[in-house]
Design a protein around this nucleic acid. Structure first.
Length: 874
DNA sequence: CTCTCCCT
């Protein structure tokens, strides 16, 4: 150990050893450059608790796993594969003597599932745990479960670079040791955007400032390719105005921000023509070919300064030499799974504080640096990155859990740092059931176990294992191509026909064409071929596929991975498709798949209406009939025809939600009734044929209920009627096929049926339709909710009536609308007596002249009531 | 008409 070179973490190693001797779990916080990855595993090798056990160290990336193993082996003066080895998918360098095994995260899950006792393993170290990958979280939860049950002696060390150590330590119930890093101070500035300035213009402007104020290269972080391209064109366009004047705006602001441990170039000056000519702008993102990435990663020509416009690749995956300043948009694109739609979509989000610090740290690897942040300093960032487990698609996790014995109803839980959300987990289990990996009781099937053993995603695993033996060579290619980014470049890169990728791989393999002529990236194809070779080994295939597969072969194999994304072209619109899950999708206008009646959509960009199909392959629908017979259904379907206000019946032949054939069939009465009731429920009570009579009947029923609550009458408000349609309306709709067939009388009868005989008797007695007035005529009563009834009547008809009539057992006085002989309103009153006494004499004086042929007695109490005028001449 | 990064 004494031979170890010194790292910032070196002085802490005794403390780390002591802690693990006393306590089986530990949280180790150390920023990049502290040496934790390479020093901690070796420092634990001689510990008594380890005996001759192995140390497993998890890395989130393959490159990092290889590099860490390489570095440690070198440090011991050995080859990789002796004391120190590594294991990543399709590649292992471990030997009998190997005691430190650096593995990628998915490998650990396999190891634990294969041997839950973790025989021979004494410690597991989770490096870069702050990245919170799904596999890392699962691995840690499984390891904790094993430690708590079968292996109390197992040591678990979680190494993290963020401020989140406290939370992790609580979760683990573990002590916490922090190490300083090895990096130079980085000064942070927050230059604000100008009014209406786009992110790209803001960023380009600050990049120019960074070039002025600092030596060395500039690394800028943007959320994606589109923003990188826009920024690049802004930076490469000739300046239409001279660069920033001295001492104004940003230059000043930068120097006044925070206390700087180092002051940037104290005399920023405009770039000269010559200097600008020496600045090289390069893009860096995951879609680039290896060669293109190399350009960005290699040192610039002497005398040339470089501006690297990068996505998140540059945050952790690659190291860039010579960076002295970082310009950070504060944005990243992250996948979010929506359990409702079953799709994952990319969202542009604000980065976490941990990411911001990690990005800024990139400016301090070689010397002091400056980080320019393009968001307001007042903005509060989330302290650390959201764990993948809370926002990702979870079918893979659900399958691992099922293999561990955790099913939907098992009630068993793992000790999660962040538990998987129930909705996404349920959706994952649904998919697994559809793929045949889970039985109906939720337990894992034999196919599910095979899928885990194969080590592909559940979707691709299902496709691979269901393929006929003679197609397995092609399946291996499809797995490799599906997992990789598209190898196509140039014109070809735009195609949405997935078969173009297969053809490019086969052409490259067959050496018929040079890499360049296939329009594909030879480096990418070589990597895909490596993966395909790995899959061929696992699938027991001797030789690789070649040539151009049959037109449906690719789709027919991959539809077993995406049975829910089988798509059929709509009749009306050749670009529009309906997916088996019922959602809409469309091909873009320059599609290479125009006219294909059936597709399997392999990649979609989610949109609320019609998702865009980014990659697809044609399929033969007969394969669906053969392999998913249960999804084919012939069903009677009832539809509401809005125009006819009537029920229609169809017989539909469907694959899942895709309608293959629809024929009109006669409507059965027992079919129609529920559909008619549903239509009323959906459209509201006003859709019924309300007559004047029915309205009035309902008003009286409501009035009686309000005025004589002791009768306990049913509510006939809109809401109550809708709630009880089955009771009162159904008998009258029975046998009908449209709402129009319901007569107005029938509606009244139906309403009336809500009251029994006695209640109807009370209705007629207490809330009558009309009153007989002294003239002998029946005059209608008008009922409105919450008001006394209105009796409109000519004055002359009431002669002899002393008091206001009352109804509802005398509880409610009617409101009299007293009318002139011509039917014009004279007075509204509930006090007839008062009217006769006070108002009538005046009314008489006024109207007698106008209606001389009508009686205007001085004494209305004793006069004979009449509804007619006096006969002429009397 | 345009999608971040990674992994069994």
């Amino acid at each position: 150990m004494s031979a170890l070179p010194s790292f910032p973490i070196t002085p802490l190693l005794p403390e780390i050893r002591a802690s693990l001797a006393a306590h089986p779990r530990l949280v180790l916080e150390a920023p990049p450059g502290a040496g934790k990855t390479t020093q901690v595993p070796l420092a634990l090798l001689d510990q008594p608790w380890l005996g001759d056990g192995k140390i497993l160290m998890l890395e989130p990336r393959r490159i990092a796993a290889r590099a860490a193993a390489q570095f440690m082996a070198q440090q011991r003066g050995e080859e990789v594969g002796h004391t120190v080895g590594y294991r990543i998918r399709f590649e292992a360098r471990v030997g009998k003597a190997t005691r430190v095994e650096v593995v990628t995260e998915g490998i650990l899950t396999r190891l634990i599932q294969d041997d839950p006792e973790l025989t021979g393993i004494g410690a597991i170290l989770f490096d870069e745990f702050h990245e919170r990958h799904l596999a890392g979280d699962l691995g840690a939860a499984l390891a904790l479960d094993v430690q708590g049950t079968l292996r109390p002696d197992l040591r678990i060390v979680v190494m993290s670079a963020t401020l989140d150590g406290e939370r992790i330590a609580q979760w683990l119930d573990a002590p916490r040791i922090s190490s300083p890093g090895r990096s130079f101070p980085v000064k942070v500035a927050y230059p604000p955007a100008r009014v209406q300035e786009s992110t790209e213009h803001h960023l380009a402007r600050v990049v120019r400032v960074a070039l002025q104020e600092n030596d060395g290269d500039v690394l800028a972080f943007l959320p994606g390719r589109r923003e990188i391209a826009r920024t690049q064109s802004i930076l490469e366009a000739p300046l239409d105005h001279p660069p920033l004047p001295l001492g104004e705006g940003l230059g000043e602001r930068v120097r006044s921000e925070r206390s700087a441990s180092v002051s940037p170039n104290p005399h920023p000056r405009p770039l000269s023509q010559r200097e600008r000519g020496e600045i090289e702008v390069v893009a860096l993102h995951g879609e680039l070919s290896l060669a293109e990435q190399q350009t960005a990663l290699s040192p610039a020509e002497p005398g040339t300064r470089r501006v690297v416009l990068a996505t998140n690749v540059a945050e952790s995956s690659v190291t860039l030499p010579g960076i002295r300043s970082v310009v950070d948009s504060g944005l990243a694109r992250e996948p979010r799974f929506d359990p409702h739609s079953g799709f994952t979509r990319l969202e542009t989000v604000n980065i976490s504080q941990a990411s911001a610090d990690q990005r800024a740290g990139r400016a301090g690897r070689v010397a002091e640096g400056t980080a320019y942040r393009l968001w307001p300093q007042s903005r509060r960032l989330d302290p650390s990155r959201t764990a993948e487990i809370v926002q990702a698609e979870l079918s893979g996790l659900a399958l691992e859990l099922a293999a561990w014995g955790i099913t939907a109803g098992s009630g068993v839980e793992l000790p999660w740092l962040d538990a998987p959300p129930a909705g996404a987990l349920a959706q994952g289990r649904d998919l697994l059931t559809q793929l045949g990996a889970l039985a109906t009781d939720g337990r894992i099937t034999a196919l599910g176990r095979e899928m885990l053993e194969l080590g592909a995603t559940p979707r691709l695993g299902a496709a691979a294992l269901r393929a006929a033996t003679e197609l397995r060579a092609l399946v291996a290619d499809l797995l490799a191509l599906m997992e990789a980014r598209s190898p196509l470049r140039g014109e070809q890169a735009r195609t949405d026909d997935f078969r173009a990728r297969v053809n490019a791989l086969h052409a490259w393999r067959d050496r018929h064409t040079a890499g360049a002529r296939t329009g594909a990236d030879a480096g990418a194809l070589a990597a895909i071929e490596q993966a395909s070779k790995g899959w061929r080994r696992r699938l027991d295939v001797r030789s690789a596929a070649s040539g151009v597969p049959d037109s449906h072969a690719v789709g027919d194999l991959l539809l077993h991975a995406f049975p829910d994304r089988v798509a059929r072209r709509d009749d009306g619109n050749p670009l529009r498709y309906t997916l088996a899950n019922g959602r809409g999708a469309r091909l873009h206008e320059s599609t290479a798949l125009h006219g294909e009646p059936w597709l399997v959509a392999l990649d979609l960009r989610f949109e609320a209406r019609d998702s865009l199909i980014l990659a697809a392959a044609p399929i033969d629908p007969r394969v669906l009939e053969r392999d998913y017979p249960a999804q084919f259904r012939r069903e009677r379907v009832l539809r509401w025809n809005e125009e006819r206000q009537a029920v229609e019946a169809f017989e539909e032949q469907r694959y899942a939600a895709i309608v293959l054939d629809r024929r009109s069939v006669p409507v059965k009465p027992e079919d129609a009734l529920p559909a008619l009731l549903a239509a009323v429920r959906a459209k509201g009570i006003d859709v019924l044929p309300w007559s004047e009579h029915a309205h009035r009947l309902r008003a009286r029923m409501q009035a009686l209920r309000a005025w004589m609550p002791e009768l306990g009458l049913p509510d006939v408000s809109d809401a109550a009627l809708l709630d009880t349609l089955d009771d009162w309306l159904a008998p009258y709709l029975n046998g009908k096929r449209s709402l129009g067939a319901l007569g107005a009388d029938e509606l009244s009868q139906a309403l009336g049926s809500l009251f029994d005989y006695e209640q109807r008797r009370q209705l007629d007695a207490q809330v009558p339709e009309s009153l007989t007035v002294p003239s002998g005529m029946n005059r209608r009563l008008d009922y409105a909710e919450g008001e006394p009834p209105v009796l409109a009547v000519k004055l002359q008809e009431l002669f002899g009536l002393a008091d206001t009539p009352r109804i509802a057992n005398g509880r409610i006085p009617v409101t009299l609308h007293l009318l002139s002989p011509a039917g014009r309103p004279i007075q509204v009153t509930q006090d007839l007596k008062g009217f006769w006494e006070r108002t009538y004499p005046e009314v008489k004086k006024e109207l007698k002249g106008r209606y001389p042929r009508h009686p205007w007695p001085d004494d209305p109490w004793t006069a004979a009531p009449t509804h007619r005028a006096k006969p002429r001449g009397t």
